Simulated assay, not measured.
Amino acid sequence: MLLRKIIKSIIIIVCSYALLKLIHYILNKIFKFKRFDVRYKNTLCSILLSISYYIIFTATLILILREFGILDTARFSTLVTGASIVGLLAGIAAQSILKDIFNGFFIIFEKQIQVGDFVLINEKFRGTVDEIGIRSTSLRDWDLKRVTLPNGSINSVRNYSKDKMRVVVHVRVCYEENPMKVMESLEEVCSIMNETYSKYLIKSSHGENYSPFKVYGITDIYENSVGAQYTITGVVASHKYFHALKDAKLQILIVFNKNGIKIAYPTHINILQSGDCSKDD
């Protein structure tokens, strides 16, 4: 008798797992024929799978409990007792769970983040969004470690994958360098960047570059004494932001080295005073 119940429970679990896989397959087929943005499609698929998981898990648990006679759906008193137990457990965890769920719905419907976005959450957790559920969100950081955060704990989101981003690069140059020579060298850097990233520069409605790479100018000469700070900027498609940022820094080093411009760095000058050393005869 017990063996039969165990076998039935195993069959229920296997069928539930197969049903979840079937739902995943059907969702992929449906979204394949719909013209959704890839990140939006992955986000919807992640959410629907999360909801399906909770529904199937709950149904599986009820069927197994009924199989072992712990829960009898035919008896109202048993249902009331079960509901009381569930209500007690829900009451204990309701505050945090409801907060996670409500915050999750706001994140999803306001499209604050989508699967595939590179984000910084709470100014601490940085990575690519791997999965969004109704209760939690998972990231993959630089080391490919998976970080899972309850949706209720997400207070701030910095999204690096929203259409366009401004590349801002600061460089400090020694005060002794000719400012006009530095500006000309940075103009050369901007020309290289505009040519390299011409396809990824944001276009205006007239087809012109919205904000190509250009020299913003001298942005600081006092904050620290190592040299004057020059800044270049440019607006590119968000998925090319980090590539453009790295390439801009590389081109600055290459052009400065070619033109003999020295980048400022901290130095220490020690002044030694020699005393009046008189020797008695």
Results as ranks from 00 to 15, higher is better:
residue 167 V to H: 02
residue 168 V to F: 04
residue 224 N to I: 12
residue 142 W to R: 12
residue 164 K to A: 09
residue 179 P to R: 12
residue 217 G to V: 04
residue 187 E to T: 13
residue 146 R to K: 15
residue 175 Y to F: 15
residue 137 T to L: 06
residue 207 G to C: 06
residue 190 C to L: 03
residue 147 V to G: 06
residue 215 V to Y: 08
residue 169 V to D: 00
residue 197 Y to W: 00
residue 130 D to N: 15
residue 201 L to P: 00
residue 199 K to L: 00
residue 144 L to N: 14
residue 146 R to V: 03
residue 228 A to V: 13
residue 180 M to E: 14
residue 173 V to H: 14
residue 170 H to T: 09
residue 164 K to W: 11
residue 160 Y to S: 03
residue 232 I to P: 02
residue 188 E to A: 14
residue 147 V to N: 02
residue 215 V to K: 10
residue 198 S to H: 06
residue 206 H to K: 09
residue 137 T to P: 02
residue 134 I to E: 02
residue 206 H to F: 13
residue 159 N to E: 05
residue 211 S to T: 08
residue 181 K to T: 11
residue 168 V to E: 10
residue 197 Y to N: 01
residue 199 K to W: 00
residue 150 P to T: 06
residue 171 V to E: 11
residue 221 I to N: 10
residue 176 E to V: 09
residue 208 E to N: 14
residue 137 T to H: 02
residue 183 M to C: 12
residue 150 P to W: 05
residue 173 V to T: 14
residue 164 K to V: 04
residue 227 G to A: 15
residue 225 S to C: 10
residue 181 K to N: 15
residue 233 T to R: 12
residue 171 V to G: 04
residue 222 Y to D: 13
residue 231 T to A: 10
residue 213 F to W: 00
residue 222 Y to C: 11
residue 203 K to H: 05
residue 191 S to G: 05
residue 215 V to N: 03
residue 190 C to Y: 14
residue 132 I to Q: 13
residue 134 I to H: 04
residue 132 I to D: 04
residue 217 G to L: 04
residue 156 S to T: 15
residue 140 R to K: 11
residue 136 S to Q: 05
residue 227 G to Y: 09
residue 215 V to S: 09
residue 138 S to Y: 03
residue 164 K to R: 11
residue 231 T to L: 14
residue 152 G to Q: 03
residue 185 S to E: 14
residue 160 Y to I: 04
residue 227 G to R: 03
residue 203 K to N: 09
residue 232 I to M: 01
residue 212 P to E: 07
residue 222 Y to R: 12
residue 166 R to D: 13
residue 167 V to Q: 01
residue 158 R to F: 13
residue 166 R to I: 10
residue 132 I to Y: 07
residue 198 S to Y: 01
residue 224 N to M: 09
residue 175 Y to V: 13
